[in-house]
Write a protein that binds this DNA or RNA. Structure first.
Lengths: 141, 141
DNA sequence: CTTGACGTTCCAGCGCAGTGGAAGCCCTAG
DNA sequence: CTAGGGCTTCCACTGCGCTGGAACGTCAAG
């Protein structure tokens, strides 16, 4: 199967497929005499895995890691579990950050109702955002 | 005051201060005969505003916007409120995405306990991450 | 024979908020 | 006089996951 068909079957673009090969999450296929890439069914499975792993929040680098482990030392289950755990912890942290930020924004929003535009000093740009906002580290967006 | 002292007083680096000037969130100060930047107290207030606005989740582009509005048409309160509202909505969306993702990861994690490593087929790389994971759009990290 | 759809390579850029480094000036103390 | 610390400019690079385009090769249909 050529790259266009693989793209059609997986819902990816040919660009993305070549990119995946370049970053090592899709093995380089054999080539036709013309130089065209010639994929087998395994490529479809592989790309399905990549998509699933992405949907689980893994980066391409982590996915490549998993694939490498699989290729060199068998089932990467333990490695994958560790990754999932650290991602869960990551998500918890980010959810907490964003929730706190959400509360801050809400506080500013509701405080804004009390403010008198006349008291707004150009030097501070806008009193809706007071300089004494807690110096919360800018969250890992 | 020279840039180093401004940096010391605001907790930023001189690099960052010059960068802020280049993206338009800090006005270019007058220069000493030597060519050195010479800041007044207003710069401290301005940087405090930038930090506060960042802590509220605004991007430098949005902060520049606010500053421009302030300079050209007076108090930007309404604009700022609109921004805060859209950010709050944004945060809600992202929190929901991450929470859903967190649940997915948890589901994979707990399902993994039931799996028998022996049934793990190299073609699918790792059965802990099944291809039928909901094709959730990769969240706006 | 030509057209058009496909394929190939490589290089560049997006957005975001800086950071790093090189090459050179300014100023003061020793 | 020289060393140093601070300042100037400019350009490149980081991470991440692609995406766009140029310039070219390949193949089947008309």
């Amino acid at each position: 199967m050529r790259i266009g068909q693989l793209a059609a079957r997986t819902g990816l673009t040919t660009k993305t497929i070549r990119f995946y090969e370049s970053v090592g999450v899709l093995p380089a296929p054999v080539r036709c005499p013309s130089g065209y890439r010639d994929y087998d069914e395994g490529a479809v499975d592989r790309l399905a895995f990549v998509k699933a792993a992405q949907a689980a929040g893994l980066s391409l680098a982590e996915i490549r890691e998993i694939i490498t482990v699989r290729a060199s030392s068998g089932a990467p289950c333990q490695h994958v579990l560790t990754l999932l755990d650290s991602h869960a912890a990551d998500l918890d942290r980010r959810i907490a950050e964003l929730t706190a930020l959400r509360a801050d924004v809400e506080r500013l929003r509701s405080r804004a109702g009390i403010l008198d535009p006349a008291t707004c000093d150009p030097a501070v740009v806008c009193q809706v955002i007071p300089a004494d906002v807690v110096a919360r580290p800018v969250p890992t967006t």
